[in-house]
Each structure stands twice: as C-alpha cells, then as structure tokens.
Write a protein that binds this DNA or RNA. Structure first.
Lengths: 220, 220
DNA sequence: ATCTATACTGACTCTCAGTCATTTTTTGAA
DNA sequence: TTCAAAAAATGACTGAGAGTCAGTATAGAT
C-alpha cells in the first residue's frame, strides 16, 4: 500500500474535479465543441491551471475514458460472483455492458475517442493510456473466465480457444452496442429505423445467436 | 436518365479531383492533421475554391465516406451473383468487407468519422449524407437477401427475422473488423496482442461461430 | 470588341489550443 | 510571528488553421 502525501492527494482530487467539469461541459455540447476555456470556467480554475494537471486537451479526454473503463470493468467483475452457468455469465456481461453504455453515454463516446487518440504516439505511451489498457485487459480476463467456466459446465463449446473467443465476443459486442447506442442517442443511419428492434433485447438475441447458432445443420 | 450539362459534368469532375487530393493528404498524416491549405495545394486550387465545392472540411470527409460506401456496396452486390448457399454468401460478404477495409483503410477511417459527423444536424441533412444512407441501405438489402436465400436452402435457421439478423450481423461484423483494423494499422490496445489470432481467419471463425453456434445443447 | 456571369483567388478574420511572464499562495526555517 | 523561497495559479498573448469575401480572371453571349 503506497502512502500518499497530502499534496499528492489534493492534486489527485483536483484532477478529478477537472474531469468532472470536463464531463459537464461535454454533456452540454459534445466533445467537438467543448473548449478549454469552458472547462476551466466550469472547474473554477484558470485555463493555465488545466495544463498543470493535464498535458493537453486530448489527455483530459483520455482521463474520462480511463474513468469509464474502470467503472465498466468493475461492473463486469461483480458478475463473476453470481452462481450461474458460463453462458449465463456471458449473457449477463453483455447486458451489463449495454446498461453501462445507456446510463453513461459520455463514457462510451470517450471510448470511441480513445481509439482515435492513441494513434498519437505520445498519448499512447502515457500513464493514462496504460491505465486504460490495464482496465481493458482486466475486463477481457473476466470474459475469458466466464468462457472457461462455461466450457467446464458444458454450456459453451470447448472447440474454440477461450481467449480467441473472448476477443471475438468483445469485438462483436462492441459493434452491436455501438449500433444500439447510435440508434438511441443521436442522428443515426436510417437503416437502423428499417427494423423495429428492441434495444433491451438485442444483446439477448445476439448472445442467443452466438450461443445456440443460427445454422440448422449442426455437425457436433 | 437525367442529361447533365457540360458545366455540371465539369463541376462534378472537379469535385472528384478535390476528393482525390484530400485522400492523398490524409494518407500522409491522417485525418486530424490534414489542413484545408494542404488539400488546396494538393488539388492545385486556392483554398477559397474548396469552399465553392464543399460546404466545409467535414463535408469533404463526408464525401470520402460516401465514395467508400459506394465502392463497398458495389463489391457486396457482386457476391449475390455467385451460385452458393446463403450461409456461404454471408461468409463471402464478410470476407469482402475485411478485404475492402484492408485495401482501403482510409475509407474505413472515413466511415468512423462519418458516424461522428452526423451528430451535426446540418451535415446529417445534407445530400452527401443521404447518399451514404442510400448505400448503407442497399448493402443491408444484399445481406438480407443472402439470409433469405440461406433460410430457403436450409443453410440458415429461419427462426429469426432476416432483417433483425441482418442488423446483428452488420453491427457485429463492424465491431470485429474494427478490431482487426486497429490491430493491423496503428497503435492499438495491447489486449489485441495477448491473443495470437490471424486476421485473415478471424472473419471465418466469427462467421463459423455465428453459423454453427458455440453452445453444446442445441434445442433444434 | 465589349459586356456579363461565373469561377477563382489569397489576404484577412476569428476561434481556440497551448504558453509563459507575472502574481498569489503556501511552506517551513529562523 | 516573520519572511524568503518554492509552488501554484493566472490570464494576456501567440500561432495555427477553418472559414470569408472583396477583388480578379475567364468563358460565353451579343
């Protein structure tokens, strides 16, 4: 356990307040139109002070993403406590993911930003990015655990590598939830309106398709 | 058939040249750091001229996205010509999607941009956005056709609504390919390196999982 | 050849991220 | 308690780049 000095704690707290302020500003007008001046005003500090706590604007956004990853990973970790089959655990994780995105749209938007931001080498190698990576890896571990449980209890086929399967589920779920998110929150591609699908059930349908398969001719 | 005047044709051609120039500039340094001055220089016109052909910078990006959608949709349409089972058609479409993204990373990046851009109402209601929507809807129709063929020939379960299934495949594939794309092209989340998966086969595995299911206890 | 409409130009404005000389606050040694 | 050094904070300033517009060039009509 690392003992932090009062200074360090105060500094960390101030950092959190700036992140809170940034989230408030972004909620009003979106990521694109949020300015450092606005964030400073909201945080009740000068613009210069922002740069004492964060390297640049992108790293504030990175910090939002980091907080989001942490929250999401936490909520996934809780799911492993349930006494359920592996497949049920995966289903619950998918539902938790969707719920998180619906309740915290700003974090989800930040995740999308994150993927663009890390093409910048300097940010990619920052401490904040490392924390995001760590959260993601942790989340992935929970998914793989659930898959392994499912392979043990027979609810999930054991012909795939659980890690590869984990990645596929991770990627595919992200795509689905991305779609669901856009449909709910903003201007979105009109094809999403052609089908009258219920958002609360789409993850269930998706996991069901993954789980039971959509083809008739099952070989095993 | 609408007969265009020479003027109109020249204008359209110039527009395409500007899009070409923008793509060249973006290839060099990415979307973020491309400037209107650079694009103008590359296109051998003045900066002001860019604004005679495009409303603003975002709409140039939108135009790139539109061209990309058109190309991708075209390549999907060709697949329906093959004499294959529905499931095979879907698999081929997935492969075509991946190939397109690998060969034209810039268009894929533009697609991602597009989804952010359309949160701006003005752009969302533009002619270019409408063209993107039309392409997307067309692509979706091809997927649904393939699914219907598969439900007829027995290669795909007919217990789902083909349209809903189409959306799920669309969303999930996007997520998977997004992941594959990031792994190949740029700084990317390190969890992608934890698993040594082959990109050329990931779509196959994904479609196989969708197609044959991952659960042991098949009810039908 | 002259006129008019359309296409084009690039210097200019404005906004905003990021900087830095200056001021304010905190610390802790005497 | 005092005060000098260090740390934190400020906000006017700078530079970059998107977008504008008064002025210029060109093509087509008469």
């Amino acid at each position: 356990m690392i003992k932090k000095t009062r200074k360090e704690r105060e500094r960390a707290a101030r950092k959190q307040l700036i992140i809170d302020a940034a989230i408030e500003v972004i909620k009003k007008n979106g990521f694109e139109s949020a300015t450092m001046d606005e964030i400073a005003k909201q945080a009740e500090v000068s613009k210069g002070a922002l740069y004492l706590y964060f390297k640049n604007k992108a790293s504030i956004y990175l910090a939002i993403s980091e907080r989001g990853s942490r929250l999401l990973t936490q909520s996934l970790s809780k799911i492993l406590l349930f006494e359920l089959s592996g497949l049920e655990l995966i289903r619950k994780m998918g539902q938790a993911y969707l719920k998180f995105v619906q309740q915290n749209p700003i974090y989800f938007t930040a995740f999308i930003y994150y993927e663009n931001l890390i093409s910048d080498d300097e940010l990619f190698e920052s401490e904040l990015a490392a924390a995001c990576e760590e959260s993601a890896r942790e989340a992935m571990t929970y998914i793989v655990r659930a898959l392994q449980i499912g392979m043990q209890d027979g609810s999930i086929k054991d012909t795939y590598d659980p890690k590869e399967l984990g990645l596929i589920i991770w990627g595919a779920s992200k795509g689905i939830i991305h779609m669901a998110f856009y449909k709910e929150n903003r201007n979105h591609m009109k094809i999403l309106d052609d089908v009258d699908f219920s958002l609360d059930s789409i993850i269930n349908n998706f996991i069901e398709i993954l789980g039971t398969g959509m083809a008739n001719d099952q070989k095993s």
